[in-house]
């Protein structure tokens, strides 16, 4: 199988996810790789980013001045701008948007995901307790949940499983998984490899995937 460095993997993943967004979408992007999707939006597609800490229309980050008080930050606490058309609200409203099905899409990372769409992304028992934060609410309500992750963990451990072993974030919540190797849809029949990185074969992808991949008629389309 071809070797890809980390930044190529990430770029492949976030560029593909960006194509899923339509103009006017309300989207929550998780910290880290998911947040990079906003940099690759197709021409003419404008989205409003949701921050579960209480804003829509999250804009670019601004430098931190010493002793500054923050009234406009991303969900990780870093100061940001709000774009024209944005809005501020409290935590109840922020999570009403998430849980109530008002967000078009949420993109987040995963420790494990399985062929039934179960997601584990918040806690590895034995490692420091981080708390689930807003993840559980975000994934139960968004119209679409996209997992953005490298196909395997450090050291090559599989992450796309038949059944998650780690504590779950939510049951059956994932719609789509995008990795550097392909674009996968969770269906009632199982996990479908709809698109594939043209530099690899289905067999190669299956070899690093525990879930049984369903290959659509005519084979998966090229991912880019």
């Amino acid at each position: 199988m071809i070797e890809m460095d980390k930044s190529t993997k990430r770029e492949t993943i976030v560029k593909r996810i960006a194509k899923e967004f339509e103009d006017g979408y309300y989207v929550n992007l998780g910290v880290g790789m998911p947040s990079l999707v906003a940099n690759y939006l197709p021409e003419g597609v404008n989205i409003l980013l949701h921050g579960e800490n209480g804003m829509l229309g999250m804009g670019e980050h601004v430098p931190v001045e010493e002793g500054e008080e923050f009234n406009c930050v991303d969900a990780g606490g870093a100061p940001v701008k709000v774009i024209p058309g944005g809005a501020f609200f409290d935590s109840c409203t922020a999570f009403a948007m998430a849980r109530g099905g008002h967000l078009d899409c949420t993109v987040l990372g995963a420790l494990e995901v399985d062929q039934e769409g179960n997601l584990a992304n918040w806690w590895i028992p034995g490692v420091r307790m981080p708390g689930m934060g807003g993840a559980m609410d975000l994934v139960v309500g968004a119209k679409r949940v996209i997992v953005a992750m490298e196909h395997t963990a450090k050291g090559g451990a599989v992450k796309i499983l038949k059944k998650c072993g780690l504590p779950l974030t939510a049951v059956g919540c994932v719609d789509t998984i995008v990795t550097e190797l392909g674009f996968f849809k969770v269906s009632p029949e199982g996990l479908v490899i709809e698109e594939i990185n043209p530099n690899v074969t289905v067999e190669e992808v299956q070899a690093v995937t525990e879930a049984e991949l369903i290959v659509p008629e005519g084979g998966p389309k090229p991912m880019f």
Binding site: N71, V73, V82, F88, D90, S91, C92
Partner: peptide, 11 residues
């Protein structure tokens, strides 16, 4: 209250 400093302060 201003910006997203509202968060849980309102409830």
């Amino acid at each position: 209250m201003v910006g997203n400093a509202r968060n849980t302060n309102t409830v």
